[in-house]
């Protein structure tokens, strides 16, 4: 596998500390499925050394969209990229979601975790009933709300401070919408605490979480991403994930 080069088309801050970057790469646009992630080199040379894993948020013709938080030096460099700059990309990596048919699928996004759920929602909506729940600390942290609305799905919001939608964790909304034994699926992306909360509270529906936080290689060779598996051992979430069944891991 060789790294790819692609030009940045647009890059802008869409919420405090959250960036939306579009780039063009026809091959990747064709190949990327919901759940895939890309490993991006923040800059040339040995510092920062490692790539940053980012999930694909959306695909539109030859263009792909990444939406990411920039808490560290590497992601801050990605945030500084301007149209015409070149991205250094390894991917697509990880195992994509196996898309279901004729199911009710609940999507749960916490903060920037809404990003990979957009592409998933887009690819699920024709053959499933999709409900989306987005949460953040406050209204200004809710992202991609217009994009989800345009998909004409049921969308619910939750904020910790009650400034938009339900006051409380977004997981409350998911739990309210779970009907045990009806074959529902839950896909969630967000902070570890949110995923742990879902794993604890969702009963009677198959729940999956996106794990992309800290990796070494992103390709399965270094064994540096490790999620404790129930019954012992670890799941390499770059290789066996990044979408992992929440009842199979210890959170």
């Amino acid at each position: 596998m060789k790294s790819l080069r692609a030009p940045v088309v647009a890059n802008a801050e869409v919420a405090p500390g959250i960036w939306s970057l579009w780039f063009e790469h026809p091959g990747l646009a064709r190949a990327c499925r919901p759940g895939h992630f890309l490993n991006l080199k923040p800059g040339p040379g040995p510092d920062p050394l490692l790539r940053r894993p980012l999930s694909v948020c959306d695909v539109e013709r030859d263009r792909l969209r990444l939406v990411f938080r920039a808490p560290g030096r590497g992601t801050a460099l990605l945030a500084q990229l301007r149209p015409g700059d070149e991205l250094d990309i390894l991917g697509p990596l990880g195992r994509p979601v196996r898309l279901p048919k004729r199911r009710t699928v609940l999507l749960c996004g916490g903060g920037v975790g809404a990003a990979p759920l957009l592409l998933l929602a887009r690819r699920l909506r024709d053959e499933n009933r999709v409900k989306v729940f987005l949460g953040a600390r406050a209204a200004e942290g809710l992202i991609l709300t217009r994009e989800f609305s345009r998909l004409r799905l049921e969308v619910g919001f939750a904020t910790d401070d009650g400034s938009h939608g339900h006051r409380g964790p977004v997981t409350d909304l998911v739990v309210k919408n779970v009907h045990p034994g009806t074959g529902q699926l839950v896909y969630a992306c967000g902070p570890l605490a949110m995923l742990a909360d879902l794993a604890r509270r969702v009963k009677g529906a198959e729940a999956w979480g996106f794990f992309e936080e800290r990796m070494g290689c992103g390709t399965g060779i270094c064994y540096c991403c490790a999620l404790p598996r129930k019954g012992g051992g670890y799941t390499r979430f770059c290789q066996e994930g990044p979408v992992v069944r929440l009842d199979e891991v210890e959170l």
Binding site: L50, C222, Y223, C224, L227
Partner: peptide, 11 residues
């Protein structure tokens, strides 16, 4: 985990 930490020029 975590099993990896990055520093300038290394891990």
């Amino acid at each position: 985990g975590p099993r990896i930490f990055e520093f300038p020029g290394g891990i």
